Computed example of a mutant assay.
Amino acid sequence: MEIRIFQWLVPALALLFLMSHLLRYYRGRIDLRETVGGILLWLGVSVLAIFPDTISNAFAQVLGFKSNTNAILFFAVGLLFYFQYRLYHIQVRQRRQLTQLTRALALQEFLKEEENKVQE
């Protein structure tokens, strides 16, 4: 089996990213779910880099593609759509929270002004 440059370079970089995830988790910057997701992602990328032909051929066979490259690209595009979907929902949730916070602050300020008018 011929070992190509990316087969040792990608796992080495993935190890750095794994360490970064663990460090951010221990510092409290990300939660356990994000940490586990990041670890699984980088482990998957490492395994795919180490055994590219075996995994991509098996993946293509399972999905019914004739070409292993098409199977990996199709899966990657699907993953990107999923991440975009998740980011959209996070944005919507943050927008709602910001609207609620703005309304609560405006109401609080209004009530404070009304209270000051009554006291005068």
Results as ranks from 00 to 15, higher is better:
residue 43 L to V: 11
residue 113 E to Y: 08
residue 49 A to F: 12
residue 18 L to A: 06
residue 53 D to A: 01
residue 18 L to R: 00
residue 36 V to R: 02
residue 58 A to V: 09
residue 107 L to E: 11
residue 63 L to A: 06
residue 8 W to P: 07
residue 115 E to Q: 00
residue 29 R to L: 15
residue 102 T to G: 07
residue 108 Q to D: 15
residue 6 F to G: 01
residue 57 N to L: 00
residue 105 L to F: 15
residue 111 L to M: 01
residue 108 Q to C: 05
residue 3 I to T: 09
residue 25 Y to A: 02
residue 91 Q to D: 06
residue 87 L to M: 14
residue 65 F to Q: 09
residue 53 D to K: 01
residue 46 S to E: 13
residue 73 L to N: 13
residue 4 R to V: 08
residue 91 Q to V: 13
residue 14 A to G: 05
residue 64 G to D: 10
residue 13 L to N: 00
residue 56 S to R: 06
residue 115 E to H: 07
residue 110 F to M: 07
residue 5 I to Y: 01
residue 36 V to L: 05
residue 63 L to V: 10
residue 52 P to S: 02
residue 107 L to F: 12
residue 39 I to A: 14
residue 34 E to S: 09
residue 60 A to H: 01
residue 40 L to T: 12
residue 81 F to Q: 07
residue 66 K to R: 12
residue 116 N to Y: 05
residue 115 E to C: 05
residue 103 R to Y: 09
residue 76 A to L: 12
residue 96 R to M: 07
residue 14 A to H: 04
residue 107 L to W: 07
residue 117 K to F: 01
residue 90 I to S: 14
residue 110 F to N: 06
residue 17 F to M: 00
residue 119 Q to S: 13
residue 118 V to D: 01
residue 16 L to G: 14
residue 13 L to M: 05
residue 54 T to S: 10
residue 89 H to A: 13
residue 15 L to G: 13
residue 56 S to F: 13
residue 80 L to D: 15
residue 61 Q to V: 06
residue 119 Q to D: 09
residue 25 Y to G: 03
residue 15 L to W: 14
residue 79 L to H: 07
residue 102 T to K: 09
residue 92 V to C: 13
residue 66 K to S: 02
residue 50 I to F: 06
residue 44 G to V: 06
residue 95 R to Y: 15
residue 54 T to R: 08
residue 52 P to I: 03
residue 69 T to E: 14
residue 96 R to F: 15
residue 99 T to S: 08
residue 97 Q to I: 07
residue 101 L to I: 13
residue 34 E to I: 01
residue 110 F to K: 03
residue 43 L to Y: 03
residue 6 F to P: 06
residue 113 E to A: 11
residue 49 A to T: 11
residue 60 A to C: 14
residue 55 I to A: 06
residue 68 N to D: 15
residue 112 K to F: 05
residue 46 S to C: 05
residue 25 Y to L: 08
residue 39 I to E: 07
residue 20 S to M: 07
residue 107 L to K: 07
residue 71 A to D: 12
residue 38 G to Q: 09
residue 6 F to W: 06
residue 29 R to T: 15
residue 46 S to H: 08
residue 28 G to H: 06
residue 41 L to C: 11
residue 68 N to R: 00
residue 84 Q to L: 11
residue 78 G to Y: 02
residue 92 V to M: 09
residue 11 P to E: 10
residue 12 A to V: 05
residue 51 F to E: 15
residue 57 N to V: 01
residue 76 A to Q: 12
residue 23 L to A: 12
residue 102 T to S: 02
residue 74 F to R: 07
residue 65 F to V: 13
residue 56 S to G: 10
residue 103 R to P: 11
residue 79 L to F: 05
residue 1 M to R: 04
residue 26 Y to K: 01
residue 63 L to H: 00
residue 33 R to K: 10
residue 1 M to Y: 13
residue 32 L to Q: 10
residue 10 V to K: 03
residue 40 L to Y: 07
residue 43 L to E: 11
residue 35 T to W: 05
residue 61 Q to A: 03
residue 80 L to Q: 13
residue 66 K to Y: 05
residue 64 G to M: 07
residue 43 L to A: 10
residue 76 A to F: 01
residue 79 L to C: 12
residue 77 V to W: 06
residue 45 V to E: 03
residue 96 R to E: 09
residue 16 L to M: 08
